[in-house]
């Protein structure tokens, strides 16, 4: 029986949570298509993590645990994956649409001479049993349904759009320890990490984002305060990053982070297509903008037409009071 291969991403000993989400989706597709779920993990010191992939849905796990794979080296990783795919011949090969996945997948696809669909937000099976890959294009303005006419069907999938299965330590599967004689990565050398991201916006459940409605850098404190009251993190539209008010890690949008929190509060953001591309799939969107015709209102669940300098301090006070009250009730 052939299978759906899922790339288990790891840049250290930990497996990126997106890999478990992909396994969840692969499981669902596998039942429909009568396939097995396979996973492949590459890195150094990752062998211990392989059972986790089985607990989350894999039937077989191919592990390449090798010091020469310690760093994220796109040529080395590509060579190993291409060799494996040629040998085990999966029908479908899924990778996360993380920056690393988006760098690696096209290289593998070109080597295999197969089609690759980027940044999918859904995968469906058509009536005639084909895999339909759904992805945003035109800066998020459209959703394209795409079919692949070559094998394997390859796609990268966005973070936090697929659901992982509950961890089941009683699940059984096979771990295949693989080795490579020669790893050719002459042309590229990783000289180490120069900086770590300061915040992880993609994981945030609550985002309080500010835009050009803010008049000066110091005013970001207002949003920081709101965020801290409700346990959120601060996001920003691109102009604030360009001004140097806040680091790029905080940028939401087409050239920044794609977020999918349960609550997104947009303060003084107009709602350009490039900004919407990064937050339109948030669960609840609240927009605060002084201009009633701002496009953001068309994409919001709740819009407040108001000056943020007036509204946000009042909102913070209200929330603090209410929080105080609920603490009191709890104590009684």
């Amino acid at each position: 029986m052939t299978g759906i291969l899922v790339y288990a991403e790891a840049s250290g000993p930990e497996i990126h949570p997106i890999s478990f989400e992909l396994l969840g989706k692969a499981r669902e597709l596998a039942e429909k298509l009568g396939l097995e779920v396979w996973s492949v993990a590459l890195g150094y010191g990752i062998s211990d993590r392989a059972p986790e992939l089985i607990y989350h849905g894999a039937d077989k796990v191919y592990v390449y645990d090798d010091e020469r794979l310690r760093d994220l080296n796109v040529v080395a990783y590509k060579n190993v994956l291409v060799e494996l795919v040629k040998e085990i011949k999966p029908e479908i090969f899924l990778l996360g649409a993380t920056p690393w996945g988006r760098s690696l997948a096209p290289r593998v696809a070109a080597a295999l001479d197969t089609g690759l669909t980027a940044d999918c937000i859904d995968l469906q099976v058509s009536e005639d049993g084909k895999l339909i890959q759904i992805r945003p294009a035109f800066t998020g303005n459209i959703l394209a349904h795409i079919e692949t006419v070559s094998k394997p069907v390859m796609a990268t999938i966005r973070y936090r759009v697929m659901r992982k299965l509950p961890r089941d330590p009683s699940r059984k599967g096979e771990i295949i320890v693989c080795s490579v004689e020669k790893i050719d990565c002459d042309g590229i050398r990783c000289l180490g990490k120069v900086s770590e991201r300061r915040i992880n916006l993609a994981d945030a459940e609550i985002v309080v984002a500010g835009g050009r409605g803010l008049k000066k850098k110091e005013d970001l404190r207002l949003l920081e305060e709101l965020a801290s009251v409700i346990g959120g993190v601060v996001g920003a539209s691109r102009p604030l990053v360009e001004e140097g008010w806040i680091s790029k890690d905080h940028q939401v949008g087409f050239s920044g982070n794609v977020v999918k929190p349960k609550l997104y509060v947009a303060c003084g953001i107009s709602g350009s297509p490039q900004h919407l591309a990064g937050m339109r799939d948030s669960n609840i969107i609240i927009a605060i903008n002084i201009d009633p015709s701002a496009p953001i209102f068309r994409h919001a669940d709740y819009g407040v037409v108001s000056d943020l300098y007036d509204f946000i301090p009042k909102l913070i006070n209200y929330l603090k009071e209410r929080a105080g009250k609920s603490v009191e009730t709890k104590m009684m």
């Binding site: 840049s11 994220l72 993380t98 920056p99 690393w100 760098s103 002459d186 042309g187 590229i188 050398r189 990783c190 000289l191 180490g192 990490k193 120069v194 900086s195 770590e196 991201r197 992880n200 790029k248 890690d249």
Partner: peptide, 13 residues
Amino acid sequence: VSDMGDKYLYELK
């Protein structure tokens, strides 16, 4: 320097 969330320094031939 490649910005993949964390930033990495690479040398390419």
